[in-house]
Design a protein around this nucleic acid. Structure first.
Lengths: 167, 167
DNA sequence: CCTATTTATATGCGTTTGCATCTATTGTAG
DNA sequence: CTACAATAGATGCAAACGCATATAAATAGG
């Protein structure tokens, strides 16, 4: 519980720091997600479905492949596949075969999908801001952003290397 | 992308900081969870099921009520109820009526449940340490721990106040 | 006390998820 | 060119999930 700003003195303390940090990150994510989940605007669409629309809205070309979506959204490949199917039947996304690779599928937002994402996104942003800014000041937010970015990049890199190493 | 250590200069930058920090936190959690999910030891038991066993193992009295479990694990109340039912049928937890409140149910680990948690937990801890320590040094881990703790406490407090305000 | 409300958990039911597996296409050797 | 492995998604199916709602116990009001 000491505010260790120096390397831990014992191996046990060292181990605890890493696991405590992960658990704290995980619980914070759960706590914030819980709060965000209450937003009525998000009732029109599931959280993971919003996540898909969000990812599509953020991509420069406007199109993402199934496997790219799968990297960003925490769902299995078959689940993504069926989710896209449902979103398509609701007229929120459209699909087209990737050119140069007839196996691949590109997914993009329709007008309706983009509009819904913007709509929900707007209120979502307000809620996020309130939660985050009530908890942390700008300095702290910047630090949190930097640390989690570093963590994500490290974990992602490890995933890619792992895949490469298998070959 | 500027390493803003001072309050943002514009409202737009200000807004982005909060939402970027949340998204980064969220994606980092997804990336690390993905990696941890690969652990073969965790195949014996689902991640959320492990989370339940973990929470039970961590509680001083050895018993938690349904609603307490529900606060910590990101699942709906009915889902927790059924998960406990399954864990019980597998002999990993046991239930007893809370004394003084015949509606309440207390859940505790069985020997087998505690053993499984320790077992899986051990290898889990090793994986977490590697992921976290490869990404961040001890100073950074301590900072991340502090910031996420602050964030979680703020979000949790808000949830409780929200519940109180409705009355 | 007796009814009305709230709190704690369980259950019915349609939907979504993951695992294993399948199909179609691409890449790689021989 | 043909055969075989690898890759991208889709699909069958059982398990797990959330929502709405039911049950049961505790609490509040009259």
């Amino acid at each position: 519980m000491s505010p260790a700003t120096n390397p831990p003195t014992t191996p046990a303390a060292h181990r605890r720091l890493a696991t405590d940090a992960w658990e704290s990150l995980f619980r914070a994510q759960v706590a914030v997600a819980r709060q965000l989940h209450k937003e009525p605007a998000l009732r029109r669409i599931g959280e993971r479905e919003y996540d898909v629309l969000y990812n599509l809205s953020r991509c420069p070309s406007g199109w993402l492949r199934m496997n790219e979506l799968n990297e960003h959204v925490l769902l299995s490949q078959p689940s993504i596949s069926r989710m896209v199917e449902r979103l398509e039947s609701r007229g929120l996304v459209r699909r087209k075969t990737a050119d140069g690779d007839k196996r691949g599928v590109l997914i993009g937002l329709t007008e309706a999908g983009a509009a819904l994402q913007r709509d929900v996104g707007r209120t979502h942003v307000v809620n996020i801001m309130q939660l985050m800014e009530d908890a942390l000041d700008d300095d702290e937010l910047a630090t949190l952003l930097a640390l989690t970015t570093k963590l994500r990049e490290s974990a992602t890199m490890k995933a890619d290397m792992g895949a490469a190493a298998v070959r």
